[in-house]
Structures are given as structure tokens and as C-alpha cells.
Nucleic acid binder design. Structure first.
Lengths: 255, 255
DNA sequence: GTTCATTTTCCGTATTTCGGAATTATCATT
DNA sequence: AATGATAATTCCGAAATACGGAAAATGAAC
């Protein structure tokens, strides 16, 4: 497990993630364990959060996220909520194409992408795609639609990570090929993935924020045998349109 | 202007509120001014936030709320979003009663309530109620629906505040009368306010969280001359039902 | 009431934080 | 390009704070 940072400021930022992430009610000991902080130090930090109202005390000796923390979150989300804004776009895609549409969000510090919203295909044959599931950045259409638009230094950091794929155990594409693939994604504006071996295929396009920083991607996934039935070029355009509309919404919110 | 706290942890918590509150893009100097922190100290704190991804840098020397901060906010809101949950309830009230319905949220550290959601009456004669507007806790149905359910120490703190009302400049109710009024609110489960002088009337009921801590209130406001046209008792029941349904949703989310 | 687990306080040490001043970077203007 | 104005960043010594192990206190369970 990763060691916590030093210094009160860094630790508080670090801690907030565990609180937002964790259960609605928690004990000091439990949080100490999850965050890997000594109990007495954690106690001091919680006092600061209590003073700020970001954490409150419940019955007995339990803590809980405070009303101020919710207020803070609401204020942030009020200006722009990626997930909520994406929802109608995903629904539209499913309506038009009858395949599962997903929204992935990218976390720059974790260097990971996760599925944050899904609209399932009506088809009975479908993969179960779970909200919250992690997306490997170097494999699949979803991952690469994000990876391609990361700054070079972050791409480097990512490919220094695991070298076997999550679903197949297949090795990562050799460096030059992967870079060629990413270049193609950038010029096309979308990524395609087609793997008859694992019977999965997909197309995805990046969602970018105000400063062109990547927020995530919108993608459509399907069993590979259905891939050929679609006019893939048209589907790609539809996905790109959805993704860039979402990018537009983000840009407006942040201007 | 209030002085910032001392100590890195307290300052970071303090700072987050300014960031969530403030514009989507900001400069160090501007934030320094708003938060009343020395530039060099603020710079150090921003470095910590940058390391955590809670703040990012945009073009030039501008800062902006980071993707991690949005992720954090989304995670918190995902479990329960007071505003979003309240929306259909407010719409229902307006549909049934044709009067403006509002949701107020209470911030325990600011000891203030604000309007966070409004559904307007279709009536042409209506007060303009603004999202974000502050609600005085000792006056009006909305404020008292909250005040009545605060812990005694917080009530004390509130009534030590301003002693003249925001709309009328009328003095606060004398202490014994106010306490009697609050007791009535608690037994009734809702507050009523009827002031022909300022031609405004309203009924409001508290929204409580898992530990019975007050989150805010739902209320309906109207011109006082329309108040008499309604079956006020039935309206009060409808509002109480809405508020307790919302309380229920909050409790479920936090259990 | 007693026990056990957990939280909270204590406290000496060592690390960070603090903020004014100096420096450097950035931007607008010529 | 060069200049000046403005703002961001780094520096640094003094002082305050954070740190965490250990002890004390709390409160839950029996």
C-alpha cells in the first residue's frame, strides 16, 4: 500500500479522497487503516476537517462527511456535471445503434480511467459493463481514446505500467506500434478496437475540457460479430459528435 | 473580512471553499485577495492541491479546479444529491398548489441557509425568489423551519446575530416569543409565516439527515392575500410529506 | 461493575509552515 | 526584439506546528 504524504496540507488533500470514496459513516480506526495514517495524526487532521464542517460527528464515536462537504460538491457539480450531461447523449447513441454506450472519466493523479455511466443495449447478447469498472488505458477502444490525448509524459508513465491486458492477458502492443496506433487515433479523432479473439469490439472518442485536457471518453462496445453488421464509419461519426458535444458543454461551463 | 485560520490543514480546508465557490479559472493573486491569504503562503498551499490533482493549471499562469476535485464531488453527490432529489417533489407541489416551492440548504459552519432550488408558481403575481439567495434564520417560514431543529447551542449563536429582519427591517421577535414559536414549529412539524404588512406568507417543513441533523427545508411562499384562499392545513401536510420524503431519501443514502 | 477496544490527549522532537523580501517569469506594448 | 509593468515563484531564518508513540480517557459490551 502506498504511503501517505508528509505535511498537513498534502495529507488533508490525500485524506479527502478516502472520505469521499468511503462509506457514509466511518470510524477513526477504519479510516486510519484505509488511509494508512497513524491514528493520532489522523485524529488531528479530522479535527481540522470538523472545524471546517467538512466532516461531522454522528451518533456515538462515528464520523461522517459533513454538510459543508456536500455543499462544496454541489457547487462544483452545479457548474458542470460530466455524468449528468453525458446521459442523454448516451441514450441517443443506444437508441440509434442498439449497442451499449459508456462514458469513461479519466483521473490524472491515479492515471486511471473508470466507467462512470452506462446505457445498455437492448440486445440480449451483451457484455455486462459495470459502472465503476476500471479501464486499461493501453487496450481497447475506450482506453486508447483517452491515452492518445494525454500529454507525452503521461503516456510514457502509463506504458511503464502493467504490460499485460486485463481481459485476455495479452501483452501490450510493442512501443512503436502502440505509438502508431495512438497517432492514428489522434488524426481520426476516434479509436477502434476489434478483437475477434475475445469477441469484443468498440469505437470511442475523447471528451476534452476547456484547456484541451482530457476528461474521458464516450464509447460504444459490442460483440465483435455484430461489429461487421454496422456501418462502422457512420457509428464512428455519431460517437465523435456525441463526444465533441460533451466537450463543448464542458468548455462552456469553464469559460 | 474574516482572517484565515492558522495551520496548513485548516487553511487547506478553508481554501477549498473559495475554490469550489469561485470562478472556473482563477489567478493566484485573485484567490489571495478573496481568501485573504498572503501570496507566498497561498502558493505553497496550491502546490499541495496541484500534487493531489485537486487543482490544475490552465493556459498561461491560470489555475483551475482539477479533475480530481470533480471526481471527488461526483462521488459524494452520487450517493445523494439533495437538490436533484428535491426537484420532482418541488414540481409536484407547484403542480398541486400553484405556488412557488423552494428548497433551502443549511450550512452549519456559516450558520446560514440558502435557496438552492426553486420551482416558480405559474401565477403572474409572484415574488422573484433567486437561487443562491440567503435566508434569514429568525424570520419567515423557511428560516424558522430550520432554526427550530438546530441544536440549542446553535440556536443561541444564531439569535446573537443580526436583530433586524432582512426584508422589513423589523426587529427580531423577543427571545421568549421566538422560543415559543420554535417550540410550536417542532410540535407541528412545520412553520407558518403570515405577514400582511410585507404581503408575504409561507409554510415550510424541515429536511433532516440520517442522524436527525438538519439539512434544510422545503417551503412554499406566496403573496399573503392568496394565503387565505388555500386550505392551509392541507398545504402544510403536503409540504411536510414532501420534506419527510426527502429526509427519507437522505437517510437511505447514509445508512 | 468490569473488561476490552477504541479514541483522545500528552509531549518532546523534528519537520513544516510562515510571510516578507528578493527573484524570476509572464504579458502587454512599443 | 526590447522594455516596462505586473504577477507568480522562490528564498530563508524564525517560529509555530506537525508528528507519532505512549499514556490516559472514554464508551461499548458483557
Amino acid at each position: 500500500m502506498a504511503d501517505p504524504p508528509r505535511g498537513a496540507a498534502d495529507r488533508l488533500a490525500y485524506l479527502l479522497k478516502f472520505i469521499a470514496n468511503g462509506p457514509a459513516r466511518f470510524s477513526l480506526g477504519e479510516l486510519a487503516e484505509r488511509s494508512n495514517l497513524p491514528a493520532s495524526s489522523l485524529h488531528r487532521l479530522l479535527q481540522a476537517l470538523l472545524r471546517a464542517g467538512l466532516v461531522e460527528r454522528g451518533a456515538g464515536q462515528e464520523y461522517r462527511p459533513g454538510r459543508e462537504l456536500h455543499r462544496l460538491a454541489s457547487q462544483l457539480i452545479a457548474s458542470f456535471d460530466l455524468t449528468r450531461s453525458a446521459r442523454p447523449l448516451l441514450e441517443r447513441l443506444v437508441e440509434d445503434w442498439h449497442e451499449t454506450a459508456v462514458l469513461c472519466a479519466y483521473s490524472p493523479t491515479l492515471r486511471k480511467a473508470h466507467i462512470v455511466e452506462v446505457v445498455m443495449t437492448p440486445h440480449p447478447l451483451r457484455y455486462s459493463v459495470d459502472k465503476g469498472g476500471e479501464i486499461a488505458l493501453a487496450w481497447g477502444s475506450l482506453g486508447r481514446a483517452i491515452l492518445a490525448f494525454l500529454p507525452p509524459s503521461e503516456i510514457e508513465a502509463v506504458i511503464r505500467g502493467p504490460t499485460v491486458g486485463p481481459l485476455t492477458g495479452s501483452p501490450r502492443l510493442p512501443r512503436p506500434e502502440l505509438f502508431a496506433e495512438l497517432a492514428k487515433v489522434r488524426t481520426n479523432g476516434h479509436s477502434r478496437y476489434y478483437s475477434p479473439k475475445i469477441e469484443i469490439a468498440g469505437i470511442a472518442a475523447p471528451v476534452l475540457g476547456h484547456g484541451a485536457e482530457i476528461l474521458g471518453c464516450i464509447g460504444v462496445t459490442m460483440p465483435s460479430n455484430r461489429y461487421q453488421l454496422h456501418r462502422a464509419d457512420n457509428l464512428a461519426v455519431a460517437i465523435q459528435d456525441s463526444a465533441s458535444e460533451l466537450s463543448g458543454l464542458a468548455a462552456i461551463a469553464y469559460s
